[in-house]
Nucleic acid binder design. Structure first.
Length: 376
DNA sequence: GCTGGACCTGG
DNA sequence: CAGGTCCAG
């Protein structure tokens, strides 16, 4: 196709420490589409968290990651900066492992066991607004349907991006204004969002209201979220995030970790909970020590009414346990265990994922056509 | 405050 | 059941 004229840039990345075929498909980001023939990933990216979207392509070999912008709306420098910040390439992954080996030798000293998982040790720094909505969609859901929903959202309310020269058109991820203008709860329900339809509409409305109230209407949703949250202590940031509909502790933590750069946050889901019980013997019972810890937390959280209302103290203790154990990048350590756990329980392995993704994409396109007609 | 259901949908 | 959240009692 266009690959002949694409001007690829490259950056030195050892695939042993960062393998995009894992990282882009493990369930952090949901909108990368894999092309098995060219071995490329493609998505529309809001490079500067502002208005313009670029079509970005990525591929990788043992030593390098390659990237290009197809339509090239923005300048090259912006693209270079985006790649470095999206994959957080300035973070020394080797050093993280050395740190974890010391702090948690039981699980990190046996490198031969861990080594295959190094490549998945990456928390992507994603667009805040898209991260918030994606993880609202993730509740009690599976990766393939979350993927489908994220694409549907762009098709229903985003703008088609011209000249991207793909078989199927690509769309921008819709902002809050587009969502409340174009979509309703019933439209989303008709398009398979289930009970999350309401959360999405309410969240978009709330962002619009908040921007209005703060006199920040000119900011994009992501810019606003950064303006509102960046630099706040975790507890305050979480309190703010929890105020959105459909956002509980788990979704809030995913948003803060992957969208807002709170790298020490370990989102406690069923997998992490299981790991805590099984591998670290965190008792689910109620020991005296635990009661004391919970009492302490309750006192600390009196300042945070929304947190008090939504938090599960048992699970929050697990979050704190792993934060204290793994340190400033505990969220990254969790990504390893997640890959290991999900990889073994749901049978997701390299080859089959790609094929499945392509199939899903095709279904998406078909349904998108019918759905768009239905909407109009 | 805490606990148990209900909740959309698809593999 | 799937990387939960909400609401009632």
């Amino acid at each position: 196709m266009t690959s002949g004229v694409d001007k690829w840039f490259k950056i030195a990345v050892n695939i042993k420490y960062l393998d995009i075929s894992t990282v882009l498909q493990i369930g952090q980001s949901f909108r990368w589409v894999y092309n098995g023939e060219t071995n490329e990933y493609i998505s529309s990216i809001n490079l500067d968290h502002d208005k313009t979207f670029d079509i970005v392509k990525l591929k990788q070999d043992d030593k390098f990651m390659y990237y290009t912008s197809v339509n090239n709306n923005n300048n090259k420098q912006l693209l270079h900066t985006w790649v470095r910040s999206y994959f957080l390439l300035d973070i020394d992954r080797k050093q993280l492992f050395e740190h974890w080996k010391i702090k948690d030798p039981k699980h990190f000293s046996n490198l031969s066991h861990i080594e295959p998982l190094c490549s998945s040790c990456c928390i992507l720094q994603q667009d805040p607004w898209e991260t918030l909505l994606s993880f609202i969609c993730s509740s009690n859901n599976n990766i393939s349907r979350i993927t489908k929903m994220c694409h549907t959202l762009t098709e229903l309310a985003g703008d088609e991006i011209p000249n991207c020269d793909q078989l199927s058109p690509l769309y921008t991820f819709p902002n809050s204004g587009q969502i409340i203008k174009v979509l309703t709860e019933s439209i989303l329900r008709e398009n398979g969002f289930g009970y999350r339809a309401k959360y999405i509409i309410e969240t978009a409305k709330k962002i619009v209201d908040l921007k209005l109230k703060d006199g920040m209407m000119e900011l994009s949703d992501s810019q606003y979220l950064k303006w509102k949250i960046s630099g706040s202590p975790y507890l305050e940031a979480r309190e703010f995030a929890l105020a959105f509909s459909g956002v509980g502790p788990k979704v809030a933590d995913c948003f803060l970790l992957m969208g807002m750069g709170y790298h020490d946050v370990v989102p406690v889901d069923v997998h992490v909970n299981r790991i805590a019980q099984r591998d670290y013997k965190i008792t689910s019972g109620s020991s005296n020590n635990k009661k004391t810890q919970i009492a302490k937390l309750k006192l600390e959280y009196t300042k945070y009414p929304t947190t008090r209302r939504k938090i599960n103290f048992d699970l929050d203790l697990i979050r704190l346990f792993f934060r204290d154990l793994w340190g400033a990048y505990s969220g990254w350590a969790q990504a390893i265990f997640f890959a290991k756990e999900v990889g073994s329980t749901s049978g997701i392995v390299d080859g089959s994922v790609s094929k499945r993704k392509l199939l899903i994409k095709t279904e998406d396109d078909n349904s998108a056509v019918t759905k768009r007609i239905k909407v109009k």
